[in-house]
Nucleic acid binder design. Sequence first.
DNA 1: TTGTACGCGTTATCAG
DNA 2: CTGATAACGCGTACAA
Lengths: 330, 330
Amino acid sequence: MGVLTIDDVAQALGVSKTTVSRAISGKGRISTKTRERVRQYIEEHNYKPNAVAQSLAQQKTFNLGLVCPIEYEIFNLTYFHRCMLGISEVASDHGYDMLISMVNGDDVANLKRIVENHKVDGVILTRTLVDDACLQYLKQSGIPFVVIGSTPDPEAVQVDNDHLSACCEMTSILIAKGCRKLFLAGGEKKNIISRTRAKGFCEAFRKAGLPVDDSWIYYDAEIRGLIPEILQRAVQEHADGIVCMDEKLAAAVVSACREKEIRIPGDLKLASFYDSEFLSNSVPAVTAVDIDDTKLGIVAAETLLRLIRGEQVQNQHLRNYQIILRESTT
Amino acid sequence: MGVLTIDDVAQALGVSKTTVSRAISGKGRISTKTRERVRQYIEEHNYKPNAVAQSLAQQKTFNLGLVCPIEYEIFNLTYFHRCMLGISEVASDHGYDMLISMVNGDDVANLKRIVENHKVDGVILTRTLVDDACLQYLKQSGIPFVVIGSTPDPEAVQVDNDHLSACCEMTSILIAKGCRKLFLAGGEKKNIISRTRAKGFCEAFRKAGLPVDDSWIYYDAEIRGLIPEILQRAVQEHADGIVCMDEKLAAAVVSACREKEIRIPGDLKLASFYDSEFLSNSVPAVTAVDIDDTKLGIVAAETLLRLIRGEQVQNQHLRNYQIILRESTT
DNA sequence: TTGTACGCGTTATCAG
DNA sequence: CTGATAACGCGTACAA
């Protein structure tokens, strides 16, 4: 390879590689003159330190691991992509790169590999499950890691948006508009976030001094194809509205209502998590919670880097969401 | 760190680290007995070679770079995710990992970093633009790389699905059903794939001995919000159908038609690229081209690995798509 | 302020 | 078949 090494630079300049190293890192005393000379040379000849060698010498990889569940579907992906964007920004700023580990359900083999092979200095998990295999593994591995999402596990450093409040707030808005009976079309039950939102849903009723029933909450609405069932019951029992945990569910509700000639918001109000063009362009436009996922990624990456440096960190509970009112809840 | 090194293993077993290295890699002559002894020890004590040290010694990173455009939107993401999945599979099988580089438009700084810092052995590009900055950079950098998509550049190794045929075929189906005037709602003009599809669109007419007009092709339909305009013209000029380059456009057509009370497929037929649940669950269900992106990723990764090994490779022109006929073209 | 020498954990070379 | 020893490219005590 015709690539320059620090030795080449040192020889060309007639100094030792220590000097070159110092000129680059800024560490240690060095005269301004030599520093400039070195800087100029490496600039002109486009010398770049070999990251691998740096890694070996410093016992750091300058890589952050990012776990990407392969079962992520269309909507989760925009969430993931935005997180990734935030993480990438912060990582770049600190000379770090992102290594992706795709995990399939409970099979953490892929994650295990990058950790055991010392290919990353820390890991970010973008979701949390009940009995999360990745989480379990990361804990016992001893590597620094941060989860985006919540988990009852006190050992895990968590960065989360306050989904409980978000769902509570959105539900409260419907209640304030006169709704008394609402159904919650939920995501997967094994996903902690689904349960958190369900708690928020219930809390809204409690705060308003109104009754709620567990039977109003439907988990796994998507994979189990529950929307038709929920709608049917909504009609029978004269429910006032439906809260969906993601856009796909909301889209299903909208199109099912169209078929059954249920008017939104006339007969049924509708609100959903996770704002997107789909909800805003939908007919009718759907009220939704908008969350700044990039911010989540940024905070998670910053926290992880701090953790890697051995600094003390705390769980971060953000509240960076806003509810966008649209026609569906008029 | 209490992590085992090859030296620890060697000492514990009373052999040299060379022997241990050989037992692991399988290279060089070694007695079956000692090999087993070593294998067993590292198994029991869970020794894993330090990937960074291996990298330094072998002048390889065992990382593949994957470029992810930050402007990827909801639908591109599922494409990207599936490519990633295929790449990941192949990479894992060869002891490789994926490093993600997020690039913003023409700013290749992020890509440049991972290449110049020697953090990857090769790069995969998941789309091609006209005057693609990433492509330009990769070419001049000298690093092995593969693009998924087409480019007129003969120096770039390309793995592509045959979008020309796909679009031609889909258009031909509409023509066979009696359509004579179709509009093409296209993606971004700077995207080579958009132009390729447009060519396929025209070819279908040519093959059928029918006239086509350039004015039937609308690029940048999404960012320029052209759907209403296209629909209006379709009504005025009694067009027979619309071909969309992605689901988002198709969704826009469907909902706009509903508002304007244009019946699909009665008044207007509709076909779209890039099958998904959105098109199959849509009312009416939309005819679409389904592409196996994972396969694309697999082939791209295999090709890149071959390139890295210094083997001769060829452009791969896959034909792994199928057209799924649905109600919208009945 | 600068340079020497060694360590980081492996693989590869070349003797034995 | 096995074992010293030298790379790989860089950081860093320690010495000058």
